[in-house]
């Protein structure tokens, strides 16, 4: 291709450039335009490409968040639309996916690990470290208690049937691969995926 691509040939269109611009040289005074800045407010939003987490179709989404990515600003998603460039969904979303905004901003959305201890009716927030430690403890105890090396006929099986795993639909191929590896390495046979639902 003979065309030159120069990434850095940006153009300056500011107050100084406008004073000497073709507009000024053609006899149109730029003062009014410059003064009119005061009448407007600059608004910023950020757009992010994402995949719907609800089912295995995996439709493409564009998420609009308020704010221009400035540090220390908590962004809030305020609009969601189908991604017209997504090869699977080409801009369409089913009612479930189209309603994802309410899910994102829901008061009852789970944003951190919580535990309801036995014999209580209250959810208590815990740290990720504590949550992972406790899950690991439960898994280890259950596996130590119930792991079967041989079945009734004495055949080697090495299986763990008392715990199962449900994986999430918003996962990449790589996540799915690791999920499978970990579950099978533990001897877990009952594995399902929310994407199938």
């Amino acid at each position: 291709m003979s065309v030159r691509v120069s990434r850095r040939s940006f153009l300056k269109l500011g107050a100084a450039g406008l004073g000497a611009s073709s507009m000024a040289m053609m006899g149109f005074a730029p003062e009014q335009a410059l003064a009119s800045i005061r009448h407007f407010k600059l608004t910023g939003s950020t757009m992010t490409r994402n995949i719907c987490t609800y089912c295995s179709v995996g439709c493409g989404m564009l998420l609009y968040t308020r704010g221009d990515g400035a540090i220390n600003v908590i962004d809030q998603v305020y609009h969601v639309e189908g991604d017209p460039d997504h090869p699977v969904s080409r801009g369409s979303l089913c009612p479930r996916g189209a309603g994802v905004l309410d899910f994102i901003n829901s008061e009852t959305r789970v944003k951190y690990p919580e535990v309801r201890e036995p014999f209580t009716n209250e959810w208590k927030r815990i740290s990720w470290d504590e949550a992972l430690d406790r899950i690991a403890r439960h898994m280890k105890d259950d596996r130590d208690r119930n792991f079967e090396t041989h079945d009734d006929k004495g055949q080697l099986v090495n299986r763990w049937l008392t715990t199962s795993m449900v994986a999430a639909s918003a996962c990449t191929n790589e996540t799915a691969y690791l999920t499978q590896k970990i579950a099978r390495a533990l001897g877990m046979l009952v594995v399902d995926n929310q994407a199938r639902v």
Partner: peptide, 9 residues
């Protein structure tokens, strides 16, 4: 990618 727009006062 950030999108800047103009609002009236």
């Amino acid at each position: 990618l950030h999108y800047f727009g103009l609002d009236e006062a």
